[in-house]
Design a protein around this nucleic acid. Structure first.
Length: 258
DNA sequence: GTTGAGCGTT
């Protein structure tokens, strides 16, 4: 009863999928099931999780049996505070296979279920896995590299509670982010004077970073080069002999690393 | 220990 997502999709022939966003990372399907089931008949509740960490992504899919109930749930549960976080309930725009659905109902199912073998399509490439990974990676990359400061983020969260229902998210912001990718790359090359923490004129070493520490162990591990690079020479505390022995990729700490 | 725009699995 409380094992959703484990048995796969039961039946999506005449079900309406609702997308629940803005949920906490600790919210589980079992927590959303009673909440949504109170407003209608929920046939399935699934929360996508990360394949590597297994953590929730922050959104869930609630499948209703009838559209009226789904609509009611959207109207009632949309904006409801769950686990201390306001959730957003809306009809899913895409199906499980990226199919276009209307009002949560799948317009064109993957299979007609009319006895027609699915080998009808030779399926030239298996873009499913790649696409899935690509999307996941993109999300992770953006999440991990936030531009906002910590204090601002903290304050924003508290303020969000007082602001009640006012999502500070803009549809254009998303586009800017995607387009900014190129700008970022371009800026990265021309923002040399801005960041003088790692002067590239420190020899023939790449400004980026040494991908292979053992690329030039002899020259790279030179005590002089290291002292100049680290700018924190401690010749008294350590002996050249010990440094030579401790030739491990561990102490390879560069302050210019990201 | 962290995250916060978005669209899904045995």
């Amino acid at each position: 009863m409380s094992h959703f997502g484990r048995a796969g999709p039961p039946d999506i022939r005449d079900t309406y999928s609702l997308l629940v966003l803005n949920i906490t990372f600790r919210t589980t399907a079992d927590d959303l099931f009673p909440l949504f089931d109170k407003y209608g008949k929920v046939v399935d509740v699934f929360i996508p999780r990360d394949r590597r960490t297994g953590d929730s992504r922050g959104f869930a899919f609630v499948r209703y049996k009838y559209a009226d109930e789904a609509q009611k749930a959207v109207d009632k549960l949309d904006g409801r505070v769950v686990d201390g976080r306001e959730i957003m309930v809306q009809f899913a725009k895409y199906g499980p296979d990226a199919e276009r659905i209307h009002k949560g109902r799948i317009l064109e199912p993957v299979e007609k279920l009319k006895g027609r073998s699915r080998s009808r399509s030779p399926r030239p490439s298996s873009r499913h896995r790649d696409d899935y990974r690509d999307r996941d990676y993109r999300r992770r990359n953006r999440s991990r590299s936030r531009d906002r400061s910590d204090h601002e983020r903290h304050r924003g969260r508290d303020r969000d509670r007082y602001r009640s229902r006012s999502r500070s998210k803009s549809p254009d912001y998303r586009r800017e982010r995607r387009r900014g990718r190129y700008d970022d790359d371009d800026k990265d090359r021309s923002r040399s004077p801005k960041r003088s923490v790692s002067p590239p004129a420190r020899g023939s070493v790449s400004p980026r970073k040494s991908l292979s520490p053992r690329r030039t162990p002899s020259r790279s591990r030179s005590p002089v080069a290291r002292a100049e690079k680290e700018r924190s020479p401690t010749p008294k505390s350590v002996s050249p002999r010990g440094r030579s022995e401790s030739r491990s990729p561990s102490p390879q700490r560069s302050d210019a690393d990201e």
